[in-house]
């Protein structure tokens, strides 16, 4: 198991991302701080629009800018701050040191290039391989992610693959250069249940085999329970709770996390029940938050919650929560 002594591979401080749109600003990510330890699997949960994808894409400059503006930091990775790094330096990190698997496998591959070409691209770019070597390695990678008959399928095009197989290709691309960190943005959401289970098994397997750290974004607390070491719960562009996975399930502190756990379907696979069963709408952040973003939907809200945005406070050795309310006493703390 991981302990406090394991070094961080990624250290994010006060990451903030704002979009300037025609209808006004969207404060999608607000002062997000977290770290990722070597070999660890960090789960990120939160309902749609809570800023999970934007947070992770902001780290390595993948949010379109304009309209996005990423501030705060530093985001320390391998001794450099990714937010102030030049484009050239960032490109050496992307795809080589940090791999990214996106939400929708159906559209994430380029339809007009063969799968082999797309897997070989990072190999040729970052590892300086020639065509023959890159091709051999691409075949190995497709094997690794469990694509049958890999040698022959290299010349096929994405539309000749099923959704699950395309997601495997995406994973192969992300893994191509042996990254230190793999960010998987809802890698299984678009897939059906059995394929999901296969992909999850595959990722666990690969993590153990290759020893990389993984950030796994999902809607699904069931998935998190099965694979994560630590969990970040996001709401309204902020981290509202952070805990080792066992603590989170045993002792959830934030009213949002508690509501989430109540909505987890008890039969694995009954995934019609998404997080949105919590009453009310997620907030659209037009301005930097000055109050608790969850207050309109919170059953424990009181005055202070609309005057002040709660800071994260420790409630255990590696457990913190951004809320004024204390579930043990039922009282509001630090009034």
């Amino acid at each position: 198991m991981l302990d406090g002594a394991t070094p961080s591979v990624l250290d994010v401080k006060d990451l903030t991302t704002t979009f300037k749109t025609r209808v006004g600003a969207v404060h999608a990510v607000n002062n997000v701080s977290f770290n990722l330890k070597a070999g660890e699997l960090l789960g990120v949960v939160g309902e749609s629009g809570s800023g999970k994808s934007v947070t992770m894409m902001s780290l390595i400059g993948l949010v379109p800018s304009p309209p996005a503006r990423v501030t705060g930091g530093p985001v320390m990775f391998e001794g450099q701050d990714l937010l102030t790094a030049s484009n050239e330096q960032l490109r050496k990190v992307r795809g080589a040191r940090i791999g990214f698997v996106f939400q929708d496998p159906m559209t994430s591959l380029n339809p007009v290039f063969s799968v082999g070409f797309q897997v070989m691209e990072p190999l040729r770019k970052h590892m300086g391989m020639n065509k023959t070597r890159a091709r051999a390695r691409a075949r190995e990678l497709l094997d690794l992610v469990g694509i049958p008959d890999a040698a022959r399928r290299l010349d096929d095009f994405p539309h000749q693959f099923s959704g699950g197989m395309r997601q495997r290709v995406m994973i192969a691309i992300a893994l191509a250069c042996d990254p230190k960190v793999l960010i998987a943005d809802e890698p299984t959401t678009a897939l059906d249940v059995t394929i999901q289970a296969q992909i999850i098994e595959l990722m666990k397997d690969l993590r153990d085999k290759l020893g990389m750290a993984v950030i796994w974004i999902t809607h699904d607390l069931g998935v998190i329970a099965g694979i994560a070491d630590r969990v970040l719960v996001m709401y309204g562009g902020q981290i509202v709770e952070h805990a080792p996975v066992r603590d989170l399930f045993a002792n959830p502190r934030h009213p949002y996390t508690r509501a989430l756990l109540l909505t987890v379907p008890n039969v694995r696979g009954e995934r019609a029940q998404r997080l949105r069963v919590i009453e009310g709408q997620p907030p659209i952040l037009r301005a930097a938050p000055t109050a608790c973003p969850f207050r309109d939907r919170c059953e424990h809200a009181f005055d202070r919650c609309s005057r002040e945005n709660p800071a994260r406070r420790l409630v255990g050795p590696v457990h913190d929560v951004a809320c004024f309310w204390d579930p043990e006493t039922g009282a509001s703390s630090d009034v």
Partner: peptide, 25 residues
């Protein structure tokens, strides 16, 4: 399109992203 983001996530040069991936489509 999403595949453009994938191309950027691979660390490709902007000119490759635009003149190979996007232009070809």
């Amino acid at each position: 399109q999403d595949y453009v983001r994938t191309a950027r996530a691979k660390g490709l040069k902007e000119s490759t992203v635009v003149l190979v991936h996007v232009l070809r489509n």
